[in-house]
Design a binder for these strands. Sequence first.
DNA 1: CCTTGTGAAGCTGTTCACAGCC
DNA 2: GGCTGTGAACAGCTTCACAAGG
Lengths: 229, 229
Amino acid sequence: MTILGTPSFGDDADRGIPDATVARLPVYLRALNGLRDRGVVTCSSNELAELVGVNPAKLRKDLSHLGSYGTRGVGYEVEFLCHQIAREIGQTQDWNVVIVGVGHLGTALSSYQGFSSRGIRVAALVDADPARIGEVVSGIAISAVADLPALVAEHDVAIGVVATPGEAAQTAADSLVDAGITSILNFAPALVTVPDGVQVRQVDLSIELQILAYHEQRKTTHSAAEGVI
Amino acid sequence: MTILGTPSFGDDADRGIPDATVARLPVYLRALNGLRDRGVVTCSSNELAELVGVNPAKLRKDLSHLGSYGTRGVGYEVEFLCHQIAREIGQTQDWNVVIVGVGHLGTALSSYQGFSSRGIRVAALVDADPARIGEVVSGIAISAVADLPALVAEHDVAIGVVATPGEAAQTAADSLVDAGITSILNFAPALVTVPDGVQVRQVDLSIELQILAYHEQRKTTHSAAEGVI
DNA sequence: CCTTGTGAAGCTGTTCACAGCC
DNA sequence: GGCTGTGAACAGCTTCACAAGG
């Protein structure tokens, strides 16, 4: 879950799809890919909604933002819908990313199976530790931070991933911005600030756990004060 | 960001804090801890809001759900507010978690600095590969999946983390449920289904990247059709 | 003065329910 | 008949703006 809002995205009233829908399209696409791989040809909104755990009406409204790609009385053609969603969220092209920080987390990300299967290619790894430069991780040689601008240009990198310790996150983000990156995914447990026009999505693994902990706590603190009639 | 809603949380109208607020409290708490460590005694809603990047009014409304802990004309006392938020989100006690799947991701999570600093203790590691049982990772010996119920009981584990490959995620979740776990954080790129009463939060690292890719694509596809007057 | 706390307004997202079409 | 697409109602969250209080 991404916590912070994305204030001031720059361009406004275009023909944009609602944020909430954009966040769900990849989920739909994964389910549809699964169906296609199993040879399913068509699929109703009810079936797909059940599969991904959302309300069927919401699913239809989401899909309606892409166009009228369903057939009344029948449903959606799986193959065709896959293609349309993939086009909309930019999965027809591969996206090259660079990971800054090759610790445990960076290593895990560089070999994350969820990336390769979805058009995301880890094109380069960068680490601040000079001793690690040249070391090969997941088939990629680690480069120096100073090489970022060259790497970005060479591999046409559009997105930077910060996987450093918290203290180094801001420095890493700054290096990415200096190298011309305008979209950053930050896994470090720290808030980073960037210039206007640069997108940051914050993924804080401990916050997710804390949300679960909050609900757990409420479960146990539940035997307390019950309303008297 | 967590994508899917959390339908049917079981108990409803209690005195619950809105979900959106719960998701932000840990962010506020981190910022406040930082301020406290730097010796800051009081803090206005404007300052804190600026720090974490939210609207000041939203911050005040969020905090008002905890009680009236501010002083008009002055602000909030940092130390006191830390304590109140920590109490509310259950950070006064340590939460023990078990990680299922000790690949790169599981290893990264087991040593994630963001956990230990926030009351989350990795109490046990479990892997399906018999060859890895007994191996020590981040100071913890890997156990067998069959030992889950015993581990959960012994360490009073409240939350399970799934860090397996996608194919194994459902099996891992099932094992956790069987062991009595009712809160699961799933990092595998796969949807898992669980019985009613069990909470799942899905963290899909590639979805976050795809959302960024969508916005990147819109930036570049922008030179197209501009409205004619 | 200052800043909090909060009604009220506004906005975004969700759900319902049904018309339209196959 | 079944299912999509969508207006309309609804719910929840955000923002404004200001009264209340130090």
